[in-house]
């Protein structure tokens, strides 16, 4: 018992309508698979953790309370430079 091709095509067309896919019985390459792909840019771009807050912003947040926060790394750096300046004037 064979089913005529026209009937099969009708079935295929109905199925495509139902599931919102493109009707393409000859299997022509229309590049639709590119359009179906999800965009992966946002996921790739968020790979590295972003800088949330800088030390300067941290210091500024405490300024209204008249509290001073020392940036030890910055102090170390300045001391290092000062030491060099005294060694090689």
């Amino acid at each position: 018992m064979s089913v005529p091709r026209a009937r099969l095509l009708d079935l295929m067309r109905a199925r495509c309508e139902l599931f919102a896919t493109t009707f393409n019985p000859e299997g022509i390459r229309t590049g639709n698979k590119i359009l179906r792909q999800r965009l992966k840019g946002p996921a790739l771009a968020s790979y590295y953790p972003r800088k949330i807050v800088t030390f300067r912003q941290f210091q500024d947040a405490f300024k209204p309370l008249e509290l001073e926060v020392d940036n030890e790394e910055e102090i170390d750096r300045l001391e290092h430079i000062a030491a060099y300046a005294t060694l090689f004037p």
Binding site: I28, R29, G31, K33, I34
Partner: peptide, 8 residues
């Protein structure tokens, strides 16, 4: 890429 792959 879609234009390149589209044979129609």
């Amino acid at each position: 890429r879609y234009i390149v792959r589209n044979t129609t």
